[in-house]
Design a protein around this nucleic acid. Structure first.
Lengths: 116, 116
DNA sequence: CTAAACCCTTACAGTGCTGTAAGAGTCAAG
DNA sequence: CTTGACTCTTACAGCACTGTAAGGGTTTAG
């Protein structure tokens, strides 16, 4: 599938798909004319990137575990460090969730103040 | 209190305190020598800004309800629209929390894949 | 009085996206 | 064969922060 179609299917702009590639998150094959060609699996990958990104994760961070998860490349050596990265990211996510909850509480207290 | 002290007490850099002011979130008085002077209440304000900001809220967004909450200025007219803004922000916070939960789940599934 | 420690303003830089534009090749339908 | 829809690369721009530096006053302790 070409880039336009992937963009439509994932809701991610062509611009960003190319950016993902530039950052090393996607590695589409190239047709002889230079056009990028994506497999079906990329849809899922992009959707995950999108989701992780929307949760405030940096592409550089996502990149750290994406290759290993896709099952491409060696899953031996680096995966020990990867585990740590994952644990750390989960911890960060939890911290963010806590902040978000606090923040939400403040907003609601504001609402109370107004409705008084 | 001068800016350096406020910075120390809140953990927000001097740079950012000035930035908050430039964006209209803080309005310190000025001594005759031009030095900014903050009251005790500003500590709380800054901490709230910090918290809301750390939850991914833009300063422009925070600014929308901060004045009304501080009790300064008119609390009549704009507060109807303010209520809407607050509701919307709460909704957004909930959406973010959902994304975060999804994201976290993905990370954990990655962890499972590895530990297999 | 002098030096250290603060404060002021202005401004440029960098990060992580994200859009848009320019200039050019490719492809498919009529 | 031409036209419209795609694609490619490169590059500039903007947003929301955030740091740092330059150039210059103010304050306070020794």
């Amino acid at each position: 599938m070409k880039i336009g179609e992937l963009a439509k299917r994932t809701g991610v702009s062509i611009r960003m798909l190319r950016y993902y590639e530039a950052e090393g998150l996607l590695k589409p094959t190239r047709a002889t004319n230079g056009y990028r060609h994506y497999g079906q699996g990329e849809i899922r990958t992009v959707e995950r990137i999108k989701l992780l990104g929307s949760a405030g994760m940096t592409l550089a961070t996502i990149k750290q575990f994406l290759p290993c998860v896709r099952g491409e490349g060696p899953v031996f050596e680096p995966c020990d460090e990867l585990r740590n990265v994952l644990h750390e990211q989960i911890k960060l996510a939890d911290q963010k969730a806590a902040k978000l909850a606090q923040s939400r509480a403040i907003l609601e207290s504001f609402l109370c103040d107004i409705e008084r």
